[in-house]
Design a protein around this nucleic acid. Structure first.
Lengths: 251, 251
DNA sequence: CGAATAGTTGACTAACGTCAATACTAGTGG
DNA sequence: CCACTAGTATTGACGTTAGTCAACTATTCG
């Protein structure tokens, strides 16, 4: 199975064989982390950079009254905390949701990589900019989209992100999130997530059983959600071909 | 008047006199831009980096039905679009709200700066990380805080950000936003903003007339909002002394 | 089997949205 | 100076979405 980091970054820039090797060396040995474990907590001094190789993680903040707000989902190929060692302390927590394979990378290693390859440096900046774009799109979702369309939008986003790293087929993927976790990321209650999910099922927009999501008609779901993937800044449509066999787009 | 960019970055790192001069040279001549003008639009190819020297601007996205979602306020000292030339097209629009002084900077100039001074490079990364932190905090606000506390939180944030660049006194600042603009950034309707503002006024938490906001008791407002400024990553409490006279904290 | 976690359902409530009318304000031109 | 206009702010009556509370039903796992 191709490395999800390489698969993802190929969507940003054209990597050389050397670049790929550097990135693969980086992501060779991940450590397994169980579900619902924190990798680093709010107020901790940031030390390493985390890279998700497999599984499902998130960023979240806890409110004084104990409620939780999930501000990002982290899927295979996602970096967390690039350059965050600049900051004195974390302003949020990073934790797993499903069992994960995680690589911890020294800040120095990142620095080294960016010095060796300007393409990788560029790809890491791209990754940061996409993270920001995603945060903005979530703000739009929370602010303006009704719960049903917001949920549909999230499912479209996750599909596309998982597709780019080879973790989804074109019409289904594994979604190991509880309704409570979905609720915490959508700013609504679990009860309401449940009702909205049922409505989407009734309308034939999705099927969801045993943590597997199936989308019978992606165009219909995307239209319903008002999904425009421009904020993910993928330079080509993700396909099922491995990176090496895809026609190259010259930058 | 000290340069707002320098004032802001001083909160991130200890700059040398050379660094300050470099930054001041960058921000010498801004162009005046009227209110409600777009600097760059969604789908445009990003070209320059923008720096706000004075005024009030924002990032926003427009939905298919014409509604607008403001995803960030940009105040003096704020960079927009650092390294965004990596991306093929903008995924949002940047526009002024009040009259502004804007500097357009070539991407090459930024690159040059970061090569010359590692402290400036670090400060620009800091700026990006703070932007991200702010987006996350807004997600929390939209997702979990009721409208009154959300508005209070926003006012606390703007106060602190303006204070760090010398654009606010400790208990009041100019807030040139309409209720509609506040609404577009909070994910609620202008009518509801109006009602919530009145409630905050009645409770004595704020005064707001002629676009001037006064906070009689900032601790009370911050407590009401549940405001924790950690996400702005300021290494010292903003004071009224100019940077040169402040005691230096060694990193 | 029992305990814990996740999902589902119904009745009721609260927060916020919608619509529409009215008032205020600043700028404009006569 | 005044009438006119456009944008902004304010208010009230009413509708809708989503929240709350609480019970009940899977499902999983030891």
């Amino acid at each position: 199975m191709a490395n999800p980091l390489v698969l993802r970054l190929e969507h940003a820039v054209s990597l050389t064989a050397d670049d790929r090797r550097l990135l693969e060396d980086l992501a060779r040995e991940g450590r397994r982390v169980g579900p619902r474990e924190d990798l680093i907590r709010e107020e901790d001094p940031p030390e390493a950079v985390y890279l998700v190789l497999d599984g499902f993680a998130c960023r979240y903040k806890t409110l004084p009254d104990g409620r939780r707000s999930i501000t990002a989902y982290l899927v295979p190929g996602d970096f967390c905390n690039l350059h965050v060692t600049i900051l004195g302390e974390m302003d949020h927590t990073i934790g797993t949701l499903a069992p994960c394979t995680i690589v911890e990378i020294e800040q120095a290693t990142i620095h080294d990589l960016t010095c060796r390859s300007p393409r990788i440096a560029r790809a890491l900046w791209w990754s940061t900019l996409v993270d920001e774009g995603t945060l903005r799109e979530w703000l739009v979702s929370l602010g303006k989209r009704p719960a049903d369309r917001q949920l549909a939008h999230l499912l479209c986003e996750l599909r596309l992100r998982l597709l780019t790293v080879g973790k989804a087929s074109s019409n289904s993927y594994s979604l190991p999130l509880t309704q409570e976790e979905l609720a915490d990321s959508m700013g609504i209650t679990p009860v309401h997530v449940n009702r909205v999910l049922q409505q989407l099922r009734e309308d034939g927009l999705i099927r969801l059983q045993d943590r597997m999501l199936t989308v019978p008609d992606i165009e219909r779901l995307e239209a319903f959600a008002g999904f425009n993937p421009n904020y993910l800044h993928l330079r080509e449509k993700p396909g099922r071909l491995p990176a090496d066999e895809r026609p190259k787009v010259t930058a």
